[in-house]
Design a protein around this nucleic acid. Structure first.
Lengths: 200, 200
DNA sequence: GCCTTGTTACACAGGTCTGTGTACCTAAAT
DNA sequence: ATTTAGGTACACAGACCTGTGTAACAAGGC
């Protein structure tokens, strides 16, 4: 009812809402009318802030591209902690897989800009792993980083269809083995190894 | 031009075409008109064989649900051979990820029937791994099977965005380590270990 | 007081999509 | 020769989608 209740960055509000709906329901499944209606603004206002739906999609993916902030914790804890964080996100009921993989899956491979940002995101995470592995003195840091990235994406894909946070624990257990095999001293990072009776 | 050139199972032709287009371009991106036009039949004929697009989608996914046929080869070769087969499929330019994961990603989690078949497929592959691991006498066959499944889906997701068949080799290398760690005698199954200089 | 900026309400063009209705046509079976 | 099964051509309803055009309105800065 209030005509202009508050205008704290309308653009941010639009983007935040588009993000939520795109992620939860899919990009093609959500129309601009739906987004505008959800915020309670007119479609015209939305188009005054974003020239097209494609621009909104790009902004959505750019917004999802968050770099992990540097941490003081030991590298091995950071690596294994990734899977704990993953498990927490899986447990949240609004988790719906990797937004970049989903976007590529539903928008097709022809959409160059979407693929480009998806590749950049995957690579940035791989490099984050690699740098930590280099700090640990792992010989083949490149290869092992790729393998850890596979475990991350594998658990995300599995959780997307199964809705089972245990996938993150399985990935952590596998990562622990791979790290130990590379000569890294794994300090039983959070009890994922000994009591592994029920890994699945 | 030929009005009835050949009617070798029209239903199969429709399904085969729908499969190809759905998989390559996405389910929502392909309309029934497009499918009919691709075959050169009228839309009416399509709807005479499938009551709705949803039925066509279900048939498409059911068709993609293929069980790996039993093999005489040693279990460890079958397991590692999975990743070789994966690499071959990645190299094909018409590979576009896992149809089940893609379907769940673009159709959303509300679509129960799609999720159901996706879960069944993932579980069937996990059980295939598990049975082979049991044959090998691996203690925690359940857990290791889950981890191998993670590697499969992880490499598929990574290849979907990166288009890099090397993801399959990285997964195979990781699988080899996990198997060895579980006490399985890995007979250097296809040279994925020694010359691993460029795993990535 | 006035003007600029941002928003609203609403209609609409033009496209796509799923699904149906109808009349005709061809080939094979009876 | 006639029936019948399956296919064709084509229009169309009804929904939804992206994007635009237009007139009015409300608030803050000058």
């Amino acid at each position: 009812m209030a005509p202009l209740p508050a205008k704290p960055d309308m653009k941010d509000r639009i983007l935040e809402t588009a993000d939520r709906l795109f992620y939860l329901q899919g990009i093609r499944a959500v129309g601009v009318d739906t987004i505008a209606a959800e915020i309670g603004i007119s479609k015209r206002t939305l188009y005054n802030h974003f020239p097209s739906k494609d621009a909104l999609i790009s902004a959505y993916l750019a917004r999802r591209f968050v770099q992990p902030r540097p941490s003081e914790k030991p590298p091995v804890e950071q690596i294994l902690g990734t899977f704990d964080a993953l498990e927490r996100r899986f447990a949240a009921k609004d988790f719906r897989g990797c937004p970049f993989v989903n976007a590529v899956a539903e928008l097709g491979s022809e959409d160059k800009s979407v693929r480009k940002i998806a590749i950049a995101f995957k690579e940035s995470r791989r490099l984050w792993f690699r740098d930590l592995l280099v700090q640990l003195g792992v010989p083949d840091a490149e290869g092992l980083a790729t393998q850890l990235a596979l475990l991350v994406d594998g658990s995300i894909a599995q959780d997307l269809v199964r809705n089972d946070p245990a996938m993150a624990r399985a990935a952590k257990a596998a990562a622990t083995v791979l790290l130990a095999n590379a000569g890294v001293q794994v300090g039983d990072g959070g009890a994922a190894q000994k009591p592994q009776a029920k890994t699945r």
